[in-house]
Amino acid sequence: MSLMQENEIKFYCPQNINELDQIIKTSKEKLTFVAGTTDLMALEHEWKKINNLVDLNCVKELSQKIEIQSDGILIGAAVPMSGIINHSLIKDKFTILVEALQQVGSEQIQNRATLGGNIINASPAGDSLPVLNVLNAQLWIGPQKNGEFEKIQVSEIMSGPDETTLKTNKYIAYVLFPFPEGENLFWYFRKVGQREALAISKLSLAVLGWFKNGKIENIRISAGAVTAQVKRAIKTESALINKELNEKLIDEARKSLEDEIAPITDIRSNVEYRKQICGELLRDALFQVKLEN
């Protein structure tokens, strides 16, 4: 009863991508694309601003497709996270993604929430973003031009807290996860929240890398909720690449990461904790790698 708002909303339910692109082409108004609506449900005051709602769940390709390609796995941006979590090949090849998604909200949320939604929300605390960054995820942006999607790196889409570079009436169609090129992968994901389920993170850290000839050949590091835009910690990464992993190096990397992030104090945590613990998580990640190699 209290949820009733009295503005009219035109609702679109396109059945496939061509229909979707056609709606966009002919529309003169701003369209609001939604998938899981887990955030929209909680933002009652935003509802009034919506005039045209496009439900991407209707678009089968976007809400169902998980396709193995030669260079990686292509996932529809509107596939519910539980669909990704329960996919045996993803579990096998991209365990870090599955582990991160399992820590999003609760199982009920995972049954509705989508990668596309998490990305477009552009929250510094978005749970999947650090992992998407270390996996070098590629975003396919619609509508198609000459039958082609525009392709950008996930690191290019976030321009600030709750802000993206995506223009009006564009949408994320697919997320492509390229197979990591190295062997003997190591990875780490840790989300720190005030409780285990249904908590917005205080900070998180994703690390992915591999060794070659006893040295770190490549490493990608991305921290959540400690920078305005979730991105890779390039400086810290380069401090580690082509090095042998030892305690001294780990300590340097930890300090480097602490310098590379710019956390704030808010209701969930404070600067000191976020800064230090982010470094501690990297130390934890690298020590575990060291202990196991």
Binding site: A42, S106, R195, A197, L198, I200, I267, R268
Partner: peptide, 16 residues
Amino acid sequence: FNVQGFSDYIIPTTTE
């Protein structure tokens, strides 16, 4: 008060 609801006033869930 510095909280608005369930997302920032953290109570234990079944997980805790």
